[in-house]
C-alpha cells in the first residue's frame, strides 16, 4: 500500500516537472536568445546559496528518485496485480474484453508507461547528453532543438510519446489524487477527472507546439 502512495507522489512530482519543462520549451517561441538564456539560467538559479548548476542537480536527483520510485512501484504492483487477477488468461470468453466502462487511458497506463520510459532515454540521449544528433549537432540548445525537430521522424517519435504521456496523465493524475484521498464525493470525482483531462491536454499540446512549429517552419 505504501507502494501506491509512492507511485502517486512520484507521479505528481513528475507532473510538476513536466509542467515546468513545458513552460521552458515554450520559450522557443521567444527566440534563440531567450531559449538559450533560459537553459543557462537553469544552471545559475539558486546562486550564490547553491553552487553552479546546484538546483539543477537537486532537481535531477529528485526526478531520478521519482522515476526510480515510480518504476519500482509500478513493476511491483504490476506483477502483484498480474498474480492477483489470476494470470494473463483470466476469463475464457472472448466477450467484454474491453471491460464495462474502462477508459482507453486506463488500459494503456502500464504499457504506455514503458513507452514513455523508452522515450525518456531517447530524449536524454538527444538533448541532455547530446549523444545523438538527428538533424545536426550544435552547441546552442536552441539550434539543437530546431535541427532535431526539422526531421520528420523525430517529430513523429515525439508526437507518439506525447500522446502516450497524455493518456498516461489522463488516468495517472486522476488515479494519483484518488490514491491520496482526494476523491471524496461524486462532485470531487467529476472535478478530479476534469483536472486530469485538463493537465493531460495542456501537457500534450504544450509539448507538441514547438516541434510542429519547427517542422512547419514557423520557428527557425
Amino acid at each position: 500500500m505504501a507502494l501506491k502512495a509512492l507511485m502517486a507522489v512520484s507521479g505528481l512530482i513528475m507532473i510538476g516537472y513536466l509542467l515546468a519543462h513545458m513552460y521552458g520549451n515554450l520559450k522557443v517561441f521567444a527566440g534563440q536568445a531567450s531559449f538559450d538564456g533560459y537553459a543557462e539560467h537553469l544552471r545559475t538559479l539558486g546562486e550564490p546559496i547553491l553552487p553552479h548548476a546546484g538546483l539543477l542537480w537537486i532537481i535531477r536527483v529528485v526526478l531520478l528518485a521519482a522515476v526510480l520510485g515510480h518504476a519500482y512501484s509500478a513493476f511491483s504492483l504490476w506483477s502483484r496485480a498480474h498474480k492477483a487477477r489470476g494470470g494473463s488468461k483470466r476469463y475464457q470468453t472472448s466477450k467484454s474484453k474491453l471491460g464495462v466502462q474502462r477508459s482507453y487511458a486506463s488500459f494503456t497506463l502500464r504499457w504506455g508507461g514503458v513507452v514513455i520510459l523508452l522515450f525518456v532515454i531517447f530524449h536524454l540521449l538527444h538533448f541532455t547528453w547530446n549523444t545523438i544528433h538527428p538533424g545536426g549537432a550544435a552547441d546552442s540548445p536552441y539550434v539543437r532543438v530546431v535541427n532535431g525537430f526539422s526531421v520528420w521522424w523525430v517529430v513523429l517519435a515525439y508526437t507518439l510519446a506525447m500522446v502516450a504521456v497524455g493518456f498516461h496523465l489522463r488516468h495517472g493524475m486522476w488515479s494519483a489524487l484518488t490514491t491520496l484521498g482526494a476523491n471524496t464525493s461524486a462532485i470531487a470525482r467529476h472535478r478530479l477527472n476534469l483536472l486530469a483531462y485538463a493537465v493531460a491536454g495542456v501537457v500534450t499540446i504544450g509539448f507538441l507546439l514547438p516541434p510542429y512549429s519547427i517542422l512547419l517552419g514557423l520557428v527557425t
Binding site: 500500500m1 507502494l3 501506491k4 504492483l77 502483484r80 496485480a81 498480474h82 498474480k83 492477483a84 487477477r85 471491460g99 464495462v100 466502462q101 474502462r102 477508459s103 486506463s106 497506463l109 488516468h171 486522476w174 488515479s175 484518488t178 490514491t179 476523491n183
Partner: peptide
C-alpha cells in the same frame, strides 16, 4: 494484501 489481492489503479470496473 496478505490474501493476495492486487492494488487499485482507480479504473472503476468494480463500481460499474
Amino acid at each position: 494484501d496478505e490474501e493476495g489481492f492486487g492494488g487499485c489503479t482507480n479504473i472503476g470496473e468494480c463500481t460499474a
